[in-house]
Simulated assay, not measured.
Amino acid sequence: MIRALLPLVIATAIGGCASTPANVGPPDAQARGASQHVVAEGPVGAMPAGTTVVSVLALPQPAGAILGPHSHIPGFTYVLGGVATVAFVDGKTVDVAAGEAVFTPANVVHVHSNERGRGVAIALAALLIGAVVGLVMLSRRGRRWTPLWLVGLITIGAIGVADPTMNDWYFIAVRPENQRGAAMPVPAARRTHESAALADLGAGPFLERLDAFVIEPGGRTMAHRSDGAETLIVTDGRATICVGGAKTTVDRDQALTVQANTPLQLLNMGTAPLGVVRFSVRPRSGHLETLVDSSPC
C-alpha cells in the first residue's frame, strides 16, 4: 500500500532532536556506547480525567486479521515484527514496519490490520500443498528423491509453525486508572506493562513521544530527569535502570515507568546490545531531558 502520513504524525528517525542536551557532567553521568533517535511523536490536548496510568499492550495479528474500526485515547502503534497497516477514516493508510511507529490522535476512527501477511500465508499454503502432492506421487513411484522431498515438506511445516505471517505490535498510551486490567481486544494479546498511578502533569497541552535506544555492552545513557513521565520498554536484551540510587533489572517485553522529575539512567550490563523504546509524556512547554549532577546509580 502507498504510505501516507497524517499531518499530526511525526515519525521515524528524526536524529539530533533539540530537546536532548549536550553530553556533559561527571563521567559516570555521561552517555557512553549509546545511540538514540526519535521514532514518532504527537500532540495531546489533555490527559484522561482522574488518575491515569501508562499502558503497554502487545497485540499480535495473524495474516488478514482486522481490529476495528474504532477510536480511542491517543497513543502509538509501535511494531516489533512484520508490518502493521493502520487505515484512517479519511482514507489515509500507513504501513508500519518493525522499529517504526505511528501516532493516533484522540477519537480518530481507524482500523488495524495485517495485510502484508496475507500474501505470505497464501504462498506458504501453496508450497505446502505442492509438497504434499509431490511426496505422494514420488512415494507411489518408488523414487529415490522421496526422502529429500520429505525433508522439504518438514521444513515448510516448521516455517508454518513459526508463523512468519504474523505481525506483532505494541499499543502504548496513557489510560484512565479505571481501565487497568480491562479485557484485551484480541485473543492473543498480552499486557506488557501497566504503571503505577502517574503524578499530576498539569492541565496541558502535552507532547507524547517515542525514542529508540541501542546500548552496547558496558554502555549507558545520559543521567537525566524529565518534566514528564518516562516508560522504558525493553525490546532486546536485559536493561539495568537506575532510579534514585536503586537498580532495577528489566527483561525483554517488560517495562518500567519513572515519574516526572526523577533522576534516571539506563545501563547495559550484559554481553549483547540492548534495545529500549522510551515512551514519554510531558507538558508541551517542558523539557524531555535535563542533566543531573551525578549518576542515580
Rank of each mutant, 00 (worst) to 15 (best):
M1K: 07
I2N: 09
L8S: 13
V9K: 01
T12N: 13
A13H: 08
G15Q: 04
A22K: 13
N23R: 06
V24H: 12
A29I: 05
A34W: 09
Q36S: 10
V38T: 10
G42M: 10
A46L: 11
A49N: 09
G50P: 07
T51I: 06
T52M: 07
V53R: 13
V53C: 11
V54G: 01
L57V: 04
P60R: 09
I66C: 05
P69R: 07
P74S: 09
Y78Q: 02
V79R: 03
G81C: 05
V89N: 05
K92Q: 06
A98E: 03
E100G: 07
F103T: 00
A106M: 07
H112P: 00
R116A: 12
G117D: 10
A126Q: 12
L127W: 11
I129A: 15
R141N: 09
W145S: 14
L150G: 15
V151F: 14
G152F: 15
G152H: 15
L153Y: 15
I156D: 11
G157V: 15
A158T: 14
N167H: 11
D168W: 13
Y170D: 02
Y170H: 11
F171D: 02
F171C: 05
I172G: 01
R175F: 09
Q179N: 06
R180E: 04
R180L: 06
M184P: 00
V186P: 00
P187T: 12
R190Y: 12
T192N: 08
A197W: 05
L198T: 02
L198K: 03
L201Q: 03
A203M: 01
A203I: 00
G204W: 00
G204A: 02
R209L: 09
R209M: 06
R209I: 08
L210S: 00
L210R: 02
L210D: 00
A212V: 01
A212K: 00
I215V: 13
R220G: 04
M222G: 05
R225T: 12
D227C: 11
E230W: 04
T231W: 01
T231S: 11
L232P: 01
T235I: 11
A239Q: 07
I241Y: 03
A246W: 08
V250K: 05
D253Q: 05
L256N: 00
T257H: 04
A260Q: 11
L264M: 14
Q265T: 06
N268M: 10
G270N: 05
L274M: 03
L274E: 00
G275K: 02
V276W: 03
V277H: 01
R278V: 03
S285I: 10
T290G: 03
V292S: 03
D293I: 07
